[in-house]
């Protein structure tokens, strides 16, 4: 099941996402948590701490800037841009950080 968590910046999306992911994992579900925010902070709400959260963002930035090879498939991305959070949640940073969407949609 795919769950998308939406809202205005600062509304508490990340707290909701992190807590739901951990709860579902505790209940025995296999959980993949995707951080699609341009300023990814989900790791902190999942309990991996600010430093590991920033390490993932830095890996992501390095990939986007071409310093590291691009992951070709989703599975490679889960492997390369991911980390294990408590209760068996797998966290992956999927947002591009360096590049802005065009100013006009």
């Amino acid at each position: 099941m795919k769950i998308a968590v939406a809202g205005k910046g600062g509304a508490g999306k990340t707290t909701v996402s992190g807590t739901l992911a951990r709860s579902l994992a505790r209940a025995g579900h296999d959980v993949l948590a995707l951080d699609a925010d341009a300023n990814p902070m989900l790791g902190v709400s999942l309990g991996v701490g600010p430093e590991e959260t920033d390490r993932l963002a830095a890996v992501r930035q390095a990939i986007d800037e071409g310093e590291m090879e691009h992951q070709r498939s989703v599975d490679e991305l889960i492997e390369g841009c991911g980390t294990n959070a408590p209760d068996g949640v797998r966290l992956v940073v999927v947002s591009r950080i360096d590049r802005a969407d065009p100013p006009c949609p």
Binding site: A4, V5, D30, D35, A38
Partner: peptide
């Protein structure tokens, strides 16, 4: 498995996430 996606802030991300089975609006 469960896939939980913490979307980018704002409405644009909702438009792009048309594959979700459930949407939580915070």
């Amino acid at each position: 498995r469960f896939v939980i996606c913490d979307l980018e802030a704002g409405v644009g991300a909702v438009v792009r996430s048309d594959q979700a089975d459930v949407v939580l609006a915070v």
